[in-house]
């Protein structure tokens, strides 16, 4: 058997409630992350992503099975050695009592330093490199408590990098960040995997971002089933739609989006082209209409989109009107259909 950087060998995860009882989240996981790969663990909130990652980091004991790190059983690795090969970024808040960014990142060297924690030249270089790679050098002298969430997250990544591990495990690093920061962090991590050959396993519930960046996905659903593969294969196999079909949401492989799974309403034809027509369709779909871009016979209403500065012409049975905003248009459409019913 060829060993990846991380191998789950018949792993069962969950919590032991008492000696006899346990809450099992997933069983018999046989998964792999290869060296230098950027793997994203994707699943809805509450599916057990954190539990799986905590087990992979050794923060939680598996109920059964083993986690192998470069072929060696995690449970039998000495703590210091484990720390040298596995770096972790967790969701928990770090309360740092006035620690500076540099000092925090330098704590990543702990598994490499001697009893006093004194840094050698090599340690300092590793810290500086980690700061440079995460683009956090500019605030190296600032206190961690003064940073924004995005900056703090990058500093925590830098701390894990300073550890110089072959494997990085990151739990929901993009949560609580705005879109730009999320993309930035994911780009950074992906670059790390591809340029420095580090093995990355990251969890997220952000489907869109995962699909755009991951080399491979581990897809976990609420029953503890895990599917693995390259993102596109999982989409085509319907696994993604399967996992995210819950609570009125539906993953649509055609649009690549999770849609509100509400019963589709009446057909409305949209005639026109370009960006305005696209957003007209968006607005109508958001309101629950089914959009027919051909403008066929079965429609209850027809919307013509015209001009560079778009305006909309609405045809609904006998009614005909012109609108300069989509808000006006949809309001009029709603009232026309209401009177038709009455």
């Amino acid at each position: 058997m060829s060993t990846g950087a991380i191998t789950l060998d018949g792993l069962a995860i969950g919590y032991r409630l008492s000696r006899r009882r346990e809450k099992r989240i997933a069983s018999d996981l046989r998964l792999r992350v290869d060296e230098g790969q950027f793997t994203v663990l994707l699943g809805p909130n509450g599916a057990g992503k954190s539990t799986l990652l905590r087990t992979v980091c050794g923060l939680q004991d598996p109920l059964e099975g083993r986690v192998l790190l470069s072929g060696r059983d995690l449970a039998s690795l000495p703590a210091r050695e484990r720390a040298r090969s596995l770096g972790v970024v967790l969701t928990e808040r770090v309360d740092t009592w006035g620690l500076t960014v540099w000092d925090l990142v330098a704590l990543g060297r702990a598994p490499h330093t001697r009893w006093s924690g004194r840094l050698t030249e090599q340690d300092r270089t590793a810290v500086a490199t980690a700061l440079a790679e995460t683009d956090t050098e500019d605030f190296a002298g600032r206190k961690v408590s003064e940073l924004s969430d995005g900056e703090k997250q990058r500093v925590l990544v830098a701390r894990a990098l300073a550890q110089e591990p072959a494997v990085l495990v990151l739990d929901e690093v993009t949560a609580f960040l705005d879109l730009a920061r999320r993309v930035e962090i994911m780009q950074l991590l992906r670059r790390l995997a591809h340029t420095s050959g580090k093995t990355l396993l990251l969890s997220t519930h952000d489907l869109d971002l995962a699909l755009r960046t991951a080399d491979r996905l581990w897809l976990i659903d609420r029953r503890g089933e895990v599917y693995e593969g390259c993102p596109e294969d999982l989409v085509l196999a319907g696994s993604l739609a399967e996992v995210f079909r819950y609570e009125g949401l539906e993953y649509d492989p055609a649009s690549g989006r999770v849609e509100l799974n509400q019963p589709l309403g009446e057909r409305v034809g949209v005639v026109g082209s370009g960006v305005p027509a696209l957003w007209t369709q968006h607005a109508l779909e958001r309101l629950g209409f089914r959009v027919d871009r051909e403008g066929g016979d079965a429609v209850v209403a027809l919307v013509e989109v015209e001009g560079e500065e778009p305006y909309w012409r609405l045809h609904c049975r006998d009614h005909e009107s012109c609108h300069s905003t989509l808000e006006d248009l949809t309001r009029e459409l709603g009232s026309q259909l209401q009177t038709a019913v009455a």
Binding site: R80, R82, G117
Partner: peptide
């Protein structure tokens, strides 16, 4: 206490991070 300086520094990060840094 001098011997404990490094472990205490690591403990600033919280229990879980301390564990992943190899601290007992």
């Amino acid at each position: 206490s001098v011997l404990l300086a490094k472990p205490l520094n690591i403990l600033l990060l919280g229990e879980n991070y301390a564990r992943t840094l190899g601290l007992a």
